[in-house]
Each structure stands twice: as C-alpha cells, then as structure tokens.
Amino acid sequence: MQKYADYIEQIEIESLWSGIRHIVWNLDPKVNILSGVNGVGKSTILNKVVKGLMQGGEFPSHLLKGVHIKVVPEDAKWIRYDVIRSIDRPLMSGDSMKKIVDVTVATELDWQLYMLQRKYLDYQVNIGNRIISVLQGGSTDAAIKAQELSRPKLLFQNLIDELFAETGKRLIRTKNEIAFTQIGEELLPYQLSSGEKQMLVILLTVLIEDNLPYVLFMDEPEISLHIDWQQKLIDMILQLNPNVQIVLTTHSPAVIMGGWIDKVTEVSDITL
C-alpha cells in the first residue's frame, strides 16, 4: 500500500547553478514563502524540487537529479502535490486543442480550467456518494455529518462569489460544471479575466484535493491578481483545505501581509 507524506520537512538541492551553490531549506508544515530579487533563483529552486518528484508523487530516498526530500512521516515514499504557475500564455497548439474540446480553449489557464472542470465533476460525484452513504447509515448525527461533507464545496462557492462580487459575477449553483451569471448572461470560465481565471484555478485545485494532506507549489501566483486578492490568497487556501502545505515564490509584499512575514525565507538564507 502506498504511504503518503503529510508534508515536506526539508528540501536539499546539490550543485545548483552549475555546482556553485548548495541549498538546504527547512520547511514549515503549513506556509513557506521563498523571496528574493529577480534572478536570485526562486523559480529555479521550485522547479528543481518539482522535477525531483516522480510521476504520481513518488520520490526516492536517494538524491534524484540533485534533490533530496525529507518528509513527515519519514517512512512515506509518496506525496500528493499540485503545481500552479501564473503566466497565461497562448497555447502553442491552440488550433488542434480547439478540435478536441467543445469550448474555446486558447491559453494555458483555459486548458487548466478545462481539466479542472472534469476533476470537479468527479469530486462532486465522490462527495455525493459519501453523503448518501452517511444518510443511509441511519446514525443520529447523519444530517450533521452530511452537512460537514458539503461544507468545502459551499465554502468554495461563497469565496468565489465574494471575490467576483464587484463585477457582478456569481456562480450558477444549480449546475454541476463551473459557470457564472452576470447581468442575466451566462458566462463560461474561459470568458473570465486572467486574474479571475488564476484565482479560480487556485481555489478549484485546492478544493478537489478533498481535504487530503498535500503540497501546493505556486510560482509567483500574484502576477495576475488584484492586490486585495493577493492579501487574502493564503488564508483562503488554508480555509479550503487545512491540511495543505503551501510552498510559494513571490515578489509581492501583499501576499505576506496578514501575519505571514515570519514564514518568509530569503534565498540567501538557505544557500550554502
């Protein structure tokens, strides 16, 4: 049976930047923010860690591509993780991609949203089956347990509606797929602004992990986000899944506002 880690305790990278530097980074179980000026290597470190994880989240006990990861519990050999990058570039194969799907998928964020839509449907089926099982169990607190199972999805919907309220957009809660209404018109996620798509991608990614322990890697997630959204980002992620470990790079002071300054690590502090 695969044993999954709760979180990453330490990241060690050998021979970074052509063997000039060695990285040892001791991580907080919840929030880790890597900071530094442009070109100092924040994204390089993050990318190196992600590449050190094998398909499906398996990682070896030895150094793989110069990366060694210590986890809790220490005998776990797998880790659940997601990676979010914020640059919304046009798809290189946009024309062929449009032939595959029945919606306009033109950018990388559009493609992420399309894939997340499918996972969101699976998530709802799984939650629905669990609710039915609880209610059929006949326990005296069945209704309370069923309500608790529904809570993350409701929280996700409420967070999105709150964030998008200024532009008059609201989730259509009667639909199984993600769709919005704005002044009586129905909108697909692909019709949102880049910042709205980015926030939707982040919160959907967190939701469908279904409260399981996992690591969320984010490379400069603030790029497309309004400053108010940047300030709320970490809190919202932890609300949706208290079991997540966040590992992100950022240039934005707004992201660390609200009590996260002690979770900031400068690249120079972990470079040997």
Rank of each mutant, 00 (worst) to 15 (best):
T140C: 04
S96G: 00
K119H: 12
Q136F: 10
R151M: 10
A143F: 13
P29C: 11
K263M: 08
M218C: 05
P189K: 01
S193A: 02
V37T: 01
M218T: 04
V267F: 13
V103K: 15
L216N: 13
L63D: 11
K169G: 06
L188T: 14
D75C: 00
K197D: 06
I234Q: 11
V267A: 10
Q245R: 10
L121M: 12
I11T: 02
H68W: 11
M199N: 05
S86E: 00
R89C: 03
L63G: 11
M92T: 09
M115N: 13
Q198W: 00
F180E: 08
A5Y: 00
S252H: 02
R80I: 03
I127L: 09
D235E: 10
P253C: 08
M1L: 06
S224H: 15
L154H: 02
V125Y: 12
P242Q: 08
R21L: 06
S61P: 02
V31H: 10
I13N: 03
S61G: 14
D28A: 06
I237G: 07
L27S: 05
Y81N: 06
L53Q: 08
G258P: 03
K98E: 14
I8V: 14
G168S: 09
E196A: 01
L212V: 00
T167R: 14
P29N: 12
T181W: 01
R80G: 13
G52S: 02
F59L: 04
D161R: 02
K175Y: 09
E186M: 09
I84G: 02
N32H: 09
I45S: 01
P73K: 07
E186V: 15
I131H: 04
I23M: 06
P90R: 09
A5C: 01
S86L: 03
V37C: 01
G184P: 10
S224L: 10
Q10K: 15
T249P: 03
E148T: 13
V206D: 06
E12S: 13
V247F: 15
G66A: 05
I223N: 04
S93C: 02
P242E: 09
Y7S: 07
R170T: 11
L63H: 13
L171R: 00
L188W: 11
K77T: 12
T250Q: 01
K175D: 14
L91D: 07
S133M: 15
P213L: 02
V267Q: 07
P90W: 12
